[in-house]
Design a protein around this nucleic acid. Sequence first.
RNA 1: GAGAGCGUAGCUCAGCCGGUAGAGCAACUGACUUUUAAUCAGUAGGUCAUGGGUUCGAAUCCCAUCGCUCUCACCA
Length: 498
Amino acid sequence: MSEQKNETALSSDAAEVRAQKLKLLREKIGDVYPAHFHRTITNAELSAKYEDLAPDTETQDIVTVAGRVYSSRNSGMFMDLHDASGKIQIFSHKDITPEASRELLSLIDLGDIIGVTGAVRRTKRGELSINAREITMLTKTLLPMPEKYHGLADIELRYRKRHLDILTNEESKLRFQQRSKILSGIRRFMENDGFMEVETPMLHSVYGGATAEPFKTHHNTLKLDMYLRIAPELYLKRTLVSGLTDKVFEINRNFRNEGVSTRHNPEFTMMECYWAYADYEDIMDLVERLFAELAMSIHGTTEFAFGDKQISFAGPFKRVPMPDAVKDATGIDFLAIKTDEEARAAAKAAGFEVEKDATWGECLAFIFEEKVESTLIQPSHVTHFPKDISPFAKEVPGEPRLVERFETYCNAWEIGNAFSELNDPEEQRARMIDQLQQAHARGEKEKQLDDEFLDAIDQGMPPAGGLGIGVDRLIMLLTNAPSIRDVILFPARRHKND
RNA sequence: GAGAGCGUAGCUCAGCCGGUAGAGCAACUGACUUUUAAUCAGUAGGUCAUGGGUUCGAAUCCCAUCGCUCUCACCA
């Protein structure tokens, strides 16, 4: 007898054992990966339906559930079965579970996906359970599950093997469920506000709409070098010219060939919208309504924690012109400074190292970034940006060095960027030529003037407010995620050879 | 791109002033059978990221490479 046991004894290597069990299962029951199985209820629905079932109570209600085995106690008599919605305990006992199903139990490993049919009851200890009458193998797994108590903790593995991260880390699962909810929340908000969603090209033969390094690619048949878009802005404005709609938006990926960090992924999601006959102040209101609504949908309130900070999305947000913010922080009054040279001197005197040829506006923006940005924890709109760093925004009346632009900051991060969109064709052309020259001076040889865009603006774009929202960062805030990689399912990673 | 740190069993982690590698979970063999990270006994499992070097001897010290993390730079 003991010899026979030795012959059938399984290897102690987890992966090998599973392969052996798979073989045994195939011999015994045939199809281990059946195509058809229909559950009658999800685990969450089950919990809700039997919420009031008292402990130590049996029902005659037969249900069929399906899910992955997460843990097993008393030699498989108790198993926790998880589906995407939640968990349910499976109880198998010789008094209720037929021989065939109990035999299957010994070939079930943690992580396997099974179906279970049986009567619902609540145990003496209060655990909602199913008395297994039939157990069906739906998917035999070949790899063991990560450790059940700590889950997958290794950060590298959590990003590389996201399926294991979500399988074992509840907060990670919740975060990606919330990401989905936030995205649909943005869509719903925009549509309810009368915006029409469109899709514009991601492959551009001329890139623009932002200052960033693009990814380069090539179209074979067209024999055309192309770029993954760095921004949808120019196409969305062309859409606005078309009269298709007065309120247009797009939610999709932008690609920027820049550094990666906890706040930067090479591909990231932006929501951009353009609203005809509105200006940047209308857009500020829109941002506040949108943020408040998203916080409500995720947290049920506009107040929430990010790390050790309390964030409030209850509007109205603080609005502060950039020159005022810089003046408050440093005492430097940029509005009183007349020339680039004076601006550089003032910056230098205050201890800031600005470029030799920095303009008045560049000095102002630089000091803002150095001194003010990190202090903007509660959501704030910083308005009145310098014109020389804002090629698509209209001038502030009476102050031609500033434009009707704002950026929304929260937790010291830039989340939103918006303007009263420039629609004067001659000025737009002049500013883009100026930007192009600057890009070429920086060595960006491939940067070209977007004639098709300028041609469309010549046709007349209605006055409009425009906005871009960094959706990943907004999701980070709302889900308390310290890294952008925590809110992107499969973040960019080097290939690992091992 | 620069600096700092990390990489030990399938997973979570010890070991690191050099002396042949350890625990818990998972797995295997049993016991037990209304459990909740079930419990108990036993077994097996490691090219200590990779490649060099120093040394009688390296997971441990040195160098290089790969991967990851953090900070900074570019950017949103």
